[in-house]
Amino acid sequence: MLKVHDIDVYYGDMQALRNVTLDVKKGEITTVIGSNGSGKSTLLRAISGILRPKTGSIQFNDKEITRTPSSGIVEGGISHVPEGRQLFPTMTVLENLEMGAQFSHMQKSAKKTMQEVFTFFPRLKERLSQKAGTLSGGEQQMVAMGRGLMSRPRLMMLDEPSLGLSPLLVSTIFEIIKQINESGTSILLIEQNVFQSLKISNHGYVLENGTIAHQGSSDQLLGNPHIRKTYLGL
């Protein structure tokens, strides 16, 4: 469904991604793991059109999207839940969710979509008129994911949804990611929480210093001695 082919991405003169190739298959959860600064967020920002790769191509459902502006990418069915939540703090939860439905076909079904969002995150229903900035970290993550669902994406990209959450909440969030996937949305998950993310995903990639160091099915990766040593400390 999503094919990233051999992309190089730069910040000014600094190369952040080198020859990155990656596939997300329809209906699956694909995880990209890696430590801080390995280029994980850069990869998502390149796919969602916030950054432009210098070389290489990105295709979504066999359509070239390498040069598509970010609004076109959202319209085409990819939603990006950015790292650190990035909510609009003075807007209410409802307004934040509404911001997720940018295009007219999304707005038409916005009410229905919101009900679906509430089935994943019943807590949000109670918090609708509260300012997003006043929510707890876990609730903010729920708003961010809910906002990402409002565009009815075919592929949802999540950038470190477990960041800064308590272990119990992390499990809840991963459980919900699984449910979202089971309801038909393909998922590209970026994580540092290697064990939990590989456990819910089908395929995994390991990003090290801007290049793909390992890839394979999640079970293979969990059994890989290098990964066990470097990322799980086993």
Binding site: S48, I50, P69, S70, S71, I73, V74, E75, S79, H80, P82, Q86, L87, F88, P89, T90, M91, E95, E98, M99, G100, Q102, F103, R147, S151
Partner: peptide, 20 residues
């Protein structure tokens, strides 16, 4: 106006949601 406030609060997030 709503989009303008979104830009003020987090321009990149607004972009990621598809706001021009």
């Amino acid at each position: 106006g709503r989009f303008m406030v979104a830009i003020r609060e987090d321009e990149e997030a607004a972009k990621a949601l598809g706001v021009n």
